[in-house]
Design a protein around this nucleic acid. Structure first.
Lengths: 244, 244
DNA sequence: TGTTAGTGTGTGAAATTTACACATTGTAAA
DNA sequence: TTTACAATGTGTAAATTTCACACACTAACA
């Protein structure tokens, strides 16, 4: 059994895309009074855990994600560290932490990672806890300061999506241009003209058309594409928004 | 006297611009053997310190910066948290930490902030330590993992500079377009055509020309401009690089 | 009064962005 | 088998942005 670092944790914001919405994975936090049966806490949190003494941040994040999904090699990006003294301070949070009595420190600092997974295939679970996908446009009440953490994760994800090809991590290997467009629209909260989007994407040589079409759809099947990181790395050029 | 958190620190990467180069402020780390006088350590580090028990990350970063400059309200941005188990591991680092004997933990995690200041005016100092500006193109040997931290800071600064108007933090309030151009060139490592740069900047309404010219220069004095964050916030539009 | 060093300005070609409408394809239901 | 449905796939013209490029101007100083 490894020793945990009592005052440092890692929280994972796990994003998934179902071809319609951007979703985030949350774990239910439920606590009932042992005697009266009264519901003391019933809300949702991100998944996180303390780091071990001999463990890097990245490793801890990957461990947490693996515990939930069984998957390795998932896209993970550290986006912010949260260190406010008062970040875990509500009565509910204190009841919960006391109940866990794992020797947590009173002042816990957390490092946020977001992770992008194709949630059309995987189903995630955590032993004995209720785990569920929520659309980012329709979130339940969140425990701790996890609403703030999620907001920051979204902000950083959006910013990164604007300048780097990370959206593909949320799609299956083979995807259609409409799926890609919906992904960008869902995350950035805009809409694009289909023809213009298509024109733009098709001139990117690292988005490669396949001789293959969608199957089992009840309409005209669309052409499938893959993203080549290889071609991307070789051909990318530093664009300068110059948004000063 | 406040108690420090033994395993968490904040490190500040302090950037300055002298109208030619992007510079970073470093503190000399020098240690001589008390008996033999032999130089055990002689290199440079970023400025950092442990956080206090009742202190937020942001507050700690501001405190460190204030200790060095006497200044408040300096631009500070958290850019990454460093948590590798082996991040402070070299013989030199261990000698240094032992010598400090302030009860530091063996595993120290640090949160990186970068700060942008106009170094044409301020001179910084730290009591009893040698403090110096270094061009980022000509750095000395750095202690701990500070080279890695600096690299990350630069990467994040560059990325942010491409999409947000933070460059002005490195300039005096009134600046010329050439100064602005050199700033961008120094940080991003490119060059721009003067006419095109000027054209681009002048169509940004939040860069406002003054009825005032440079003084005490031995050539044709240039017009001065100010940046209006106010106008920027009102008129900015989300540009979409779409660099997928 | 000439030299120096950096400022300030315009145009045309090429590339990119934007707005916009209709025919096509496969599935499923009538 | 026919029809309705739902989503795919495609082109053009106008507007805007990007890019390359050279010479006259001004203050200070010698």
């Amino acid at each position: 059994m490894q020793k945990i670092v009592p005052n440092i944790s890692v929280d994972c914001v796990i994003f998934g895309f179902d071809f319609k919405q951007l979703n985030v994975l949350l774990v239910e936090r439920k606590l009932q009074d042992e005697k009266t049966g009264e519901t003391l806490i019933d809300d949702w949190t991100l998944t996180g855990y303390h780091i071990f003494e001999d463990e890097d941040f990245d490793t801890a994040a990957a461990r947490i994600l693996k515990g939930l999904s069984g998957l390795d090699n998932i896209y993970l990006e550290q986006f912010y560290a949260f260190g406010k003294v008062s970040r875990v301070d509500s009565p509910k949070d204190n009841i919960w932490l006391k109940h866990q009595h794992e020797g947590f420190s009173s002042r816990i600092v957390t490092v946020g990672y977001y992770s992008l997974i194709d949630n059309s295939t995987v189903t995630l679970q955590l032993q004995e806890r209720n785990v569920k996908w929520f659309s980012i446009t329709d979130l339940p009440e969140l425990g701790f300061d996890h609403q703030e953490i999620l907001n920051k994760a979204l902000e950083k994800l959006r910013s990164k999506l604007r300048s780097e090809p990370i959206g593909f991590e949320l799609l299956p290997e083979k995807f259609t241009l409409s799926q890609l467009q919906k992904l960008y629209e869902a995350i950035l909260g805009t809409t694009y003209d289909r023809r213009n989007f298509r024109k733009k994407v098709l001139q990117m040589k690292y988005i490669i058309p396949l001789n293959e079409k969608q199957k089992a759809v009840k309409h005209k099947p669309a052409q499938l594409f893959i993203f080549s990181r290889d071609v991307y790395e070789r051909t990318k050029r530093e664009r300068f928004d110059f948004s000063i």
